[in-house]
Design a protein around this nucleic acid. Structure first.
Lengths: 344, 344
DNA sequence: GCGCTATCAGAAAGCGCTTTCCTGAGGTAC
DNA sequence: GTACCTCAGGAAAGCGCTTTCTGATAGCGC
């Protein structure tokens, strides 16, 4: 039975002794067909294990259902938390999902968008920080503009705002400020920040919100060390901080992933958490509660963010202005942050 | 510029004042075209932001490049480690990847396969444990059989062997046995196993290999507690074990994810690791080195497994028997397993 | 019986492309 | 000048489907 080809509707029709049109009608349930013919067609289709060619259908129907999701890495837990929600939401709507990882390569991101455009994807979702420079922005506009004006949908999560599309945005500034206030109320006064790349708006907001809250409390600004958004980055930033002589009582890592690296670095240097220094992160990715000590962080409703971005992308755009949905973060105090003795 | 439709090749051709055929030839670089016309077509295409309709291309070329990956959950680190390798391998070959999560629902798995079949996907990769029962097997065969005989490629990672397709298989039995021997040489003699669902061949092999090695050493078989493959499952199994009075010196969780749950449960009950009890896992997912204590486990080359499965799926099948690639696991001793005093 | 409408099913157009076939223009050889 | 070849580029077929159009048959009232 090595047919070397897929079964076509024509074959089904022939096998059932009806015309192509009738076979199509039966399988789409689109019009009345005599029961006898209907049965014959259905029998033939199942006999031949017929599956319609989705491309032919897409071509004639001029529509396609795929939702494309682009992020930098599937195995990043921040991303996969969001992706989980998005995939669930897509599955509920019977939409196939196409996922791609850019591995932080702008070229690849553009290439994937182009590919999704070629497939006439129903929606494109961009998750996580992009590449915030001029050239990239121009390239993005060149891809996304025609896609949007051809009726495509684009929505982003946690991206900088220069893309003028529907957005799900964590309240980074408020979350970081609330975290700072919690840490202040634990008695901390000297802070250091393990920052992600300073050009990303997520970083700007998280660091900015944090510093702002410190300033409002009349506390000196935190020392900021910049590193990539990764476990490795957190590790490196922390090592740098330690080597120049740490004089803070509390570290704030702008993402949990960085905090994980920070924790490892601290341990390697024999610095105890939280006895010697407190540590807090941001995002509440699933692993951080299993660390020792469990990590204080700002919890983001990751799955819900994924669901929301799908909903945004698929909403009725007819009377549409751009919509921005802000997701509040809640401070979760765990054991990685210590209360400092009152008379400091 | 709200065209409400995508630009077609015909529009490009008209804009450039050439025929459809010429425009196609230019954009595919498939035949000699006068430089002047070539330039006009390219200018028109870029002016109109033309992107070819991938469905039309797929239809006429009778081929499609998408690689489909199906697993139960994107946010499972075991899966995402493999997926990362697979996506990288696919990206190297310029193949788009379509990913789907079944959330452990057999119906959904079948539905996704059918969808990928409809899209005439180039290959379908199934990652992680499936559903090992009669009905499911029959349904799988009904989907996969026609797909294979139509020239589709299927490969699986870490699946039971009843699917007669190319397979990447961790050496679960050997890995678990090697782990057992390492633990024995640390002085442990009384073991308990936190097992995943007993019907899965992965579990059969891991538990079987472990017990076998114990038997060969003349050590009593480990007590086995069964639970789902999840943090929650590991937590529950451990709690059960503790409530009936733990008399083992070492726990073996059949997956790292379960070990994470076990560690949490132990901590909640005030049982210290490794002072009171040692704990070992399997897989070496990325988080376990950041636990306290870092987890002893059997390291699997997850990314490589992802790369291998793509290679298997895309290999030349012409003179093909089914191929099974076995991936060795290596025991990684970390601090979660203690050496027991010699005179036990 | 006739003419009318309903119902069902086949013929055919067309979705956006690639590719084969074919025509006509230009070049070369004699 | 004629015969022949080369080659650029247009016309058209066709990928597998959906859907409109059209035609055939049956049913009804008179």
């Amino acid at each position: 039975m090595t047919d070397r080809a897929h079964v076509t509707l024509q074959q089904v029709a022939t096998a059932a002794g009806v015309s192509l049109a009738t076979a199509s009608r039966v399988l789409n349930g689109s019009a009345r067909v005599r029961p006898e013919l209907r049965d014959r067609v259905e029998a033939a289709a199942s006999e031949l294990a017929y599956t319609p060619n989705a491309h032919a259908q897409a071509l004639v129907r001029a529509s396609w259902q795929t939702v494309g999701i682009i992020s930098h890495d599937v195995s990043d837990p921040y991303f996969s938390g969001i992706a989980r929600g998005a995939m669930r939401a897509a599955a509920e709507r019977d939409l196939p999902v196409m996922m791609a990882s850019t591995f932080r390569d702008p070229e690849r991101e553009i290439a994937y968008i182009s590919m999704l455009r070629a497939q006439r994807a129903r929606a494109i979702l961009l998750i996580g920080s992009g590449f915030e420079d001029r050239r990239w922005e121009r390239a993005m506009d060149a891809e996304l503009g025609p896609y949007l004006s051809a009726g495509g949908r684009v929505a982003v999560v946690s991206r900088h705002r220069s893309l003028r599309v529907d957005t799900v945005l964590p309240q980074n500034r408020q979350g970081a400020a609330a975290l700072a206030r919690s840490l202040l109320s634990l008695g901390h006064r000297r802070f250091a920040v393990l920052s992600g790349p300073a050009r990303l708006s997520t970083v700007v907001d998280r660091v900015g919100g944090f510093q702002r809250a410190l300033a409002e409390a009349g506390v000196p600004a935190a020392e900021v060390v910049e590193a990539p958004f990764s476990r490795e980055g957190g590790h490196r930033a922390t090592t740098a901080l330690l080597s120049r002589g740490l004089d803070s009582t509390c570290l704030f890592a702008t993402t949990d992933v960085m905090a994980v690296g920070a924790l490892a670095a601290l341990r390697e240097h024999g610095v105890r958490v939280p006895e010697d220094v407190s540590l807090a992160g941001f995002d509440d990715i699933s692993v951080v509660r299993d660390l020792t000590p469990p990590l204080t962080t700002v919890a983001l409703p990751l799955e819900e963010m994924g669901e929301r971005v799908v909903a945004l992308a698929l909403r009725d755009h007819s009377r549409g202005r751009r919509r921005i949905e802000r997701m509040a973060g809640t401070v979760v105090l765990r054991a990685s942050t210590a209360r400092l003795p009152a008379p400091q």
